[in-house]
Computed example of a mutant assay.
Amino acid sequence: MVLKGREIKPKGSVYGRVSNITKFTTKSDIINFLEGCNLDPRNLKVEYTRTYLPKSMMVEFPSRAAYDAAVKSINRKGRLFNMIKADKAQWDITAPYDGKAGIPRNALIDDVERFLSGCQYDSSSIQMFVRPTDQGPIRMALVRFPSQALAMHAYITKNRGFCLNNQITLQVLH
């Protein structure tokens, strides 16, 4: 927009969607890759498929200049990731999973609590549900941890453990 010979730049957040991420890509990886954009983990949300595989990462840039710096950074570093501009509505509908771990389960809530004994988590947050897969439906649980560090502690100490004679696979959702 031009007004009396001066350009007025819009202020506020600009949103982008970073694709080509893998299940091992973390928020820290994206923050380091987009250096100089003034980002922190609260500016990122991971988008997951129905089976909780990461498909992209939504990024909230504090300004248009930060978004432009990110585009330049991606071009300069060889396009390891791709980024397109996104709407605020897309940012708003992306659920943040900070500190949650998905646990495929064949158990009751009491069994999940026993499995997670010794870990610090919010016991009132346990959500259990069924996900359809090609091999048939699997039962899963989402558990909220107070921090990402405590979720990683549960992953390190409990992943591949057994609950009701079934091996449990944990996944930390960002």
Rank of each mutant, 00 (worst) to 15 (best):
I31N: 12
R42D: 13
G102M: 14
E7A: 13
F61D: 03
H153L: 07
G36T: 09
V130H: 03
N165R: 10
N82E: 10
R42A: 07
G16S: 01
A107W: 00
F129E: 10
P137N: 13
I109H: 04
G12M: 07
N159Y: 01
A70E: 07
G12N: 07
R144N: 14
V143K: 10
F129D: 11
D68A: 11
R76S: 09
Y52Q: 05
Y67Q: 06
F81A: 05
C119V: 13
K23R: 14
Q148M: 11
E35D: 14
L142D: 08
G36Y: 06
P10H: 09
N75I: 02
K9L: 10
S28K: 08
S117H: 09
V18S: 06
P54A: 15
F81W: 11
K23Y: 10
Y15E: 02
G16N: 07
D110F: 09
D122E: 11
S125N: 12
F129G: 01
S125T: 12
N20F: 13
I126K: 07
V46Y: 10
M58K: 05
V2Q: 02
I168Y: 00
H153P: 00
T51W: 04
A86K: 05
I168A: 02
L164P: 00
R50I: 04
I31D: 11
S125Q: 08
T49K: 15
G118Q: 07
Y155P: 03
I74E: 05
S13I: 00
Q90F: 01
D92S: 10
L173R: 10
V143P: 06
I126A: 08
Y48S: 13
I8S: 06
Q135I: 04
F24I: 03
V59G: 05
A101T: 15
D29W: 03
K85G: 06
N75W: 01
I109T: 14
A70W: 00
V2M: 05
T22K: 14
K55Y: 02
M140F: 02
D111C: 01
D134Q: 09
C163M: 15
Y67C: 03
F24C: 08
P10A: 08
L34E: 04
L80A: 09
P62R: 10
L53P: 00
S124C: 02
T169L: 08
G136H: 01
D87A: 07
M57G: 04
S56V: 03
K23Q: 15
D68G: 01
C163K: 01
V143Y: 04
S147K: 07
G118I: 13
N20Q: 14
R76V: 00
I84L: 03
Y15D: 03
S125K: 08
Q90C: 01
A86I: 01
G102H: 10
A101C: 15
N20G: 02
L34D: 05
G136K: 04
Y15S: 02
Y15T: 00
P132R: 12
L116D: 06
K45T: 03
R6K: 14
L53D: 15
C37W: 01
A151E: 13
T157V: 15
P96S: 15
G161E: 05
P41K: 05
A95S: 00
V143W: 12
M140L: 11
M152T: 14
T51M: 12
V18T: 02
M58G: 03
K85V: 09
Y97G: 05
W91H: 07
D122Q: 09
S56T: 06
R50T: 04
S13H: 12
G5C: 10
K4R: 13
K100A: 08
F33W: 04
V143I: 15
L142C: 03
